[in-house]
């Protein structure tokens, strides 16, 4: 073997050795991924075809009953649609409140920008549980938000233990992710380009609509993908703020896995979430191609 390598021209060895290094470098992460992600997903997929027995038992089987049952049950159809709609709503709300902040941060400079960026990221240092409890305190029936609304002469609406609460809580929790994604995608937005639009006769609004918005679309797409995926899979906030009224995929998976012990159904729902992720990713890459194209 060694003699054979001696005969080989020096240049010919190079590609194979760099490929070898690449494989060696990729191997650990591939292994971690295989053991930590792919294997469990296969297990989950397998579990979704088992049979659930009353009382939490599982019978080894190969049946599509969980899948067909799920897709024929109006409760679950509604739950899936509700999950997607609520997540889209949260994504939109997060985008609307984060966009101006991200734009301001993008334009800020120096120490001020660093300070503000740290301020934006700092909520990530606190757990979602703590932040959600914060919202519970704020949105409570006699809480500060309700008091402010009442002092303006309005009947404060119910803002907690329903979809409104979940949307408010998750929107705030997802804002740092959205702001960071937006800023990451704002690279093409050169202030000179905005100035060019202004000098060419565009009002500030039309400058925004025709120049700033199109140029920030990649950031918007990235932020929306991230927030959609995070919100459809988020569990803590809906659980704490939903008051048992808001049925979402993530909370339902928890209930089925932990309370009802129906693991096959929980696995089926988990696979469904994975399918929705895939769909979201497909939409994202399509949108990105459209923007870049």
């Amino acid at each position: 073997m060694t003699t054979a390598t001696f005969d080989m021209p020096v240049g010919a060895q190079k590609p194979s050795s760099t490929a070898g290094i690449a494989v060696a470098l990729l191997l650990p992460i591939a292994l971690v991924n295989a053991i930590g992600f792919i294997l469990p997903v296969f297990n989950l997929a397998r579990m979704s075809f088992n049979e659930a027995l009353p009382g939490g038992g599982i019978a080894e089987a190969f049946t599509a009953a969980n899948w067909t049952g799920l897709l024929q049950d109006s409760f679950y159809i509604e739950l899936i649609l509700n999950s997607i709609m609520v997540s889209l709503g949260i994504t939109l709300a997060t985008l609307l409140v984060s966009y101006p902040i991200a734009l301001y941060l993008h334009r800020a400079s120096g120490a001020w920008r660093t300070f503000l960026t740290v301020l934006v990221i700092s909520p990530l240092l606190t757990s979602a549980v703590v932040r959600t409890y914060g919202w519970i305190a704020l949105l409570a029936e006699q809480g500060p938000v309700a008091n402010v609304i009442a002092s303006m002469g309005f009947q404060p609406p119910r803002m907690m233990f329903n979809t409104t609460g979940v949307v408010i809580g998750l929107t705030e929790i997802l804002m740092p992710y959205m702001i960071l994604s937006l800023m990451a995608g704002f690279g093409r937005l050169d202030p000179k380009v905005e100035e060019a639009a202004r000098t060419l006769g565009a009002t500030p609004f039309r400058t925004f609509w025709r120049v700033i918005l199109p140029l920030t679309l990649p950031g918007i797409a990235l932020g929306c993908l991230l927030c959609f995926v995070l919100s459809i899979s988020s569990f803590i906030t809906p659980k704490l703020m939903g008051g048992g009224r808001v049925f979402l995929l993530a909370t339902e998976i928890y209930d089925q896995a932990i309370v009802t012990l129906n693991w096959p159904l929980a696995a089926t729902l988990s696979m469904l979430v994975l399918i929705i992720f895939g769909a979201a990713l497909a939409v994202y890459s399509r949108v990105l191609r459209m923007i870049e194209g």
Partner: peptide, 30 residues
């Protein structure tokens, strides 16, 4: 008067073309 009301044509050092528009669209913008 705001820049969009001044009726001036400005050519930037970095050109500042709209990267998402074609050449024709860039020129048509104003």
């Amino acid at each position: 008067i705001a820049p969009h009301g001044r009726d001036m044509g400005l050519v930037f050092q970095s050109y500042a073309l709209f990267p998402h528009m074609t050449v024709a669209k860039n020129v048509a913008f104003g």
